[in-house]
């Protein structure tokens, strides 16, 4: 702590002049603040591809969106998807981190292998899984070969379970990142604490439940928050695998926005993206506050 205090007292501008911020700030303003501002402005207009004039339309877009059930359905689908992704991605990531915790040569190679999907294009991942999960795709062929009977499960064609399948694909793509963060978290746990636990006779499970998992709290905060809030903005994987089908059961808000935008209803699409922005914001604060509170044990 003492070193931190010393740093804070040192005059800051000596090594970090504030104008160093300008390049990053310009990028942030142009590509983030301005679009967000536009998002607020255009949501209250009648901007469309059908005419050139853009007129103020009041809260017209909001009333018509909320009276039409599709938006609420898409919001619901988006929330379910986000929760599923948060659960799966963290379960997979934590499992992998625990499995590959020891720094052996094999573990290092395997960690790299599991990290590869993270840097792959999400659309490519989506199309690969779409091919694998087709009724006559590779997964069913493998299942058929193992079971000896012909299998033709429509993995992407079930109105109840497809959203789970797609959430697993999303989690598969990002689990390498969660794994990396959990690994880093595990590394920061002091050997003294673990040794003390062992001397007190704690078994592997007790060690994990009572010592290691609570001490992973910061990693959990980061992983859950990014998985949950990131997947609320999900689009690419779902678009590539199901396009929102079957029967609209995987139609995330972003897919609905894409469809509306494609119809030329630019203002309505903007309004929806404002709704999404607000939904993510409303969800983000309590979730992050709760997760940060868990870190108080540290």
């Amino acid at each position: 702590m003492s070193t931190n205090l010393a740093l804070a007292k040192r005059p800051r501008q000596k090594d970090h002049p504030l104008w160093f911020l300008i390049p990053a700030l310009v990028v942030l303003v142009v590509f983030f603040f301005v679009p967000t501002l536009f998002n607020f402005v255009y949501a209250f207009t009648d901007w469309s591809s059908f005419k050139s004039a853009i007129n103020f339309a009041g809260i017209d877009n909001f009333t018509s969106l909320f009276t039409n059930g599709t938006l609420l359905n898409s919001l619901k689908v988006t929330l379910v998807y986000a929760v599923l992704v948060a659960v799966f991605q963290n379960a997979f990531g934590l499992g992998l981190a625990l499995l590959l915790e020891r720094d052996t040569r094999i573990n290092r190679a395997v960690r790299v292998a599991f990290f590869v999907p993270v840097i792959m294009s999400a659309l490519a991942v989506g199309y690969i899984f779409q091919a694998l999960l087709k009724p006559d795709g590779a997964l069913n062929a493998i299942l058929g070969w193992v079971s000896g009977a012909e299998v033709s499960i429509p993995w992407l064609g079930d109105t109840t379970w497809t959203i789970v399948v797609v959430a697993i694909v999303h989690s598969w793509k990002w689990m390498g990142l969660s794994m990396l963060i959990y690994l880093a978290g595990l590394k920061t746990i002091s050997d003294d604490v673990l040794e003390a636990g062992r001397l007190d006779g704690a078994g592997r499970w007790t060690m994990f439940r009572s010592i290691r998992f609570p001490l992973l709290a910061p990693a959990v905060t980061f992983n859950v928050a990014t998985a949950l809030l990131g997947s609320m903005n999900g689009f690419d994987i779902v678009q590539a695998t199901t396009e929102g089908g079957p029967g609209g059961t995987t139609e995330l808000l972003n897919i609905f926005i894409f469809r509306t935008f494609g119809q030329g209803l630019f203002a309505q699409a903007t309004t929806m993206s404002l709704v999404l922005f607000l939904a993510v914001t409303i969800l983000a604060f309590p979730v992050i506050r709760y997760l940060r509170k868990r870190e108080d044990v540290l």
């Binding site: 064609g157 109105t159 929102g244 089908g245 079957p246 029967g247 609209g248 059961t249 469809r259 119809q263």
Partner: peptide
């Protein structure tokens, strides 16, 4: 998007 809604109908939603 009549076609999407009809496909929804075929899927049963």
């Amino acid at each position: 998007d009549l076609y999407i809604y009809l496909a929804d109908m075929i899927q049963g939603t």
